[in-house]
Design a protein around this nucleic acid. Structure first.
Lengths: 205, 205
DNA sequence: GTCTATATCCCGATAGAC
DNA sequence: GTCTATCGGGATATAGAC
């Protein structure tokens, strides 16, 4: 194999990789916009600009397609979590992560899972990359939650798992889109409102 | 028309009405369990115990079927709201309504709408009974919210509409099913946790 | 009004030429 | 690997007998 062949192959692979990235981005946006069930493979192919059959050369099923998008978003969450400054308090880090989640959702880049048991669930649970990411995120947030509770920053009367789930639920909070549809508030205001209701609650202080 | 005919007709109508109630209850449960898209008309017919074609004599489409269930749940919400004692404070009434919502959802009787713009949305918006109920619920809760803010019970820095949406969102809060799946807590505890995070927030006080 | 049987359509997935 | 054309399954909705 000469050098020319190597370069050619690498270039080809780069093109393929770029196309896959484009596919995943499209899937990500469509998942965020209409959910897994309502998204059609024809739609994905049309928006990417390739034939449907070509999609199936990259991903073997609609579930795999969605799983790839979920893996990407999970990896992004991991990266954001790891980028938190060490000197920040656990509560500050948790607030930053929730804020990031709300911003991604409001920007239309947070894929939404099917409400309940669907074929996608099984695919995701069987996906090592996704599950590893989910475990890692849960572990890191779980540590911060317990630390924040120990130092009296988060309510110690709540189980840590309930707090963790409450954070996860912000990734599919319909309040964001409701407020955005109303058109009365800027995105940053909306994020601040939801962040406030999440941590400070609705009661006056 | 003699009296016998009248009785017979009335009885027939009662039977039909009873069957429609059975249909709506089945639809309600299925909507809560798997959502509008995943629910099939064949499934509804099978669980009610009649042929699919018979369903279409009562309701002209799958959307109408779901809308009937939504109208019923909205009317139940109206009734619960109206049953609140006059001497209770606005905050107490709001807490009671949110608690009721969480309990209905946890019991598997809260139909869940499609995440976003679907054919069901248009049907619901065109449905006078549903929209009237929604407006009435919004108006009554809105008054209580503003009263609670005025007397310093709810955070006055939040727009009343954001608080209202936050209440509505509890009807599809995934935290409830997450915690229920874990099996560690009783239903009443789960409701208390979510109620606490909703009003008191996650921060320590 | 209720049934069985069927029309019609949509969507995920594949065949096969290039 | 990409395309056009198509299969096969499943879902909504309807026809027509009783």
């Amino acid at each position: 194999m000469n050098s020319s062949t190597v370069v050619k192959t690498s270039f080809k692979q780069q093109m393929l990789k770029a196309r896959e990235v484009a596919i995943i981005q499209t899937v990500n946006r469509l998942l965020a916009e209409k959910g897994f069930e309502a998204m059609t493979v024809d739609e994905v192919a049309a928006q990417v600009g390739i034939a449907k059959a070509s999609l199936y050369k990259h991903f073997s099923s609609k579930e795999d397609l969605a799983a790839a998008a979920m893996v990407l978003v999970m990896r992004r969450a991991q990266e954001f979590i790891q980028s938190q400054p060490a000197q920040a308090t656990p509560l500050e880090k948790l607030r930053a992560v929730v804020r990031w989640t709300l911003q991604v959702k409001l920007a239309g880049d947070m894929p939404s899972l099917p409400s309940q048991n669907s074929t996608l669930r099984a695919t995701l649970i069987a996906n090592k990359d996704y599950m590893d990411g989910l475990m890692d995120v849960s572990d890191r947030l779980g540590e911060w939650i317990e630390a924040a509770q120990a130092e009296g920053a988060l309510n110690p009367a709540l189980p840590a798992i309930a707090i963790l789930y409450t954070f996860f639920a912000r990734a599919c909070d319909p309040v964001l889109e409701f407020l955005k549809m109303g058109g009365l508030y800027q995105d940053e205001q909306i994020v601040d409102f939801v962040l406030s209701t999440c941590f400070e609650g609705l009661n006056a202080r």
